[in-house]
Amino acid sequence: MQGVVKVNSALNMRSGPGSNYGVIGTLRNNDKVEIIKEVDGWYEIRFNGKVGYASKSYITIVN
């Protein structure tokens, strides 16, 4: 499943599904990501070869 990031500035990509996990990357508005699965309001995603987590509130699913 594919998604597009929708933010005003930047979205942190984290090592786990929560804001208490470390930041491993930064996503920008309109970045395209691969959604692997949903975990407690977060998406596990793949972006630029990295796998991490981002809040699903800021990612819109596209077909």
Results as ranks from 00 to 15, higher is better:
1 M>S: 15
2 Q>F: 11
3 G>A: 08
3 G>C: 03
4 V>P: 01
4 V>W: 04
4 V>D: 03
5 V>F: 00
5 V>I: 08
6 K>D: 07
6 K>V: 14
6 K>E: 10
6 K>A: 13
7 V>H: 13
7 V>M: 05
8 N>I: 13
8 N>G: 15
8 N>R: 08
8 N>T: 14
9 S>E: 13
9 S>L: 13
9 S>V: 10
9 S>K: 09
9 S>T: 14
10 A>Q: 12
10 A>H: 13
11 L>N: 03
11 L>R: 06
12 N>S: 14
12 N>F: 12
12 N>A: 09
13 M>Y: 06
14 R>Y: 14
14 R>K: 07
14 R>G: 02
15 S>I: 15
16 G>C: 03
17 P>F: 01
17 P>V: 03
18 G>I: 00
18 G>K: 03
18 G>E: 03
18 G>H: 05
19 S>Y: 12
21 Y>K: 03
21 Y>D: 03
22 G>W: 07
22 G>C: 06
22 G>L: 14
23 V>G: 04
23 V>S: 10
23 V>Y: 05
23 V>E: 06
23 V>I: 14
23 V>Q: 06
24 I>R: 03
25 G>V: 10
25 G>Y: 08
26 T>H: 15
27 L>C: 04
27 L>I: 07
28 R>A: 12
29 N>V: 05
29 N>P: 08
30 N>Q: 12
31 D>H: 05
31 D>W: 05
32 K>G: 08
32 K>M: 14
33 V>H: 01
34 E>L: 06
35 I>Y: 03
35 I>C: 03
35 I>V: 10
36 I>L: 12
36 I>S: 05
38 E>C: 05
38 E>T: 06
39 V>T: 08
39 V>D: 06
39 V>R: 06
40 D>K: 08
41 G>W: 06
41 G>C: 06
41 G>P: 06
42 W>G: 00
42 W>S: 01
43 Y>C: 04
43 Y>L: 11
43 Y>E: 00
44 E>R: 04
44 E>N: 11
45 I>Q: 00
45 I>D: 00
46 R>C: 05
46 R>G: 10
47 F>D: 03
47 F>L: 08
47 F>E: 03
48 N>M: 14
48 N>Y: 10
48 N>H: 13
49 G>M: 09
49 G>E: 13
49 G>L: 08
51 V>F: 09
51 V>K: 11
51 V>R: 07
52 G>I: 01
52 G>W: 02
53 Y>M: 02
54 A>E: 01
54 A>Y: 01
56 K>P: 05
57 S>F: 09
57 S>E: 14
57 S>V: 13
58 Y>L: 08
58 Y>F: 15
58 Y>A: 13
58 Y>S: 13
60 T>P: 04
62 V>D: 14
62 V>Y: 09
62 V>K: 08
62 V>R: 06
63 N>P: 13
63 N>F: 03
63 N>M: 09
63 N>H: 09
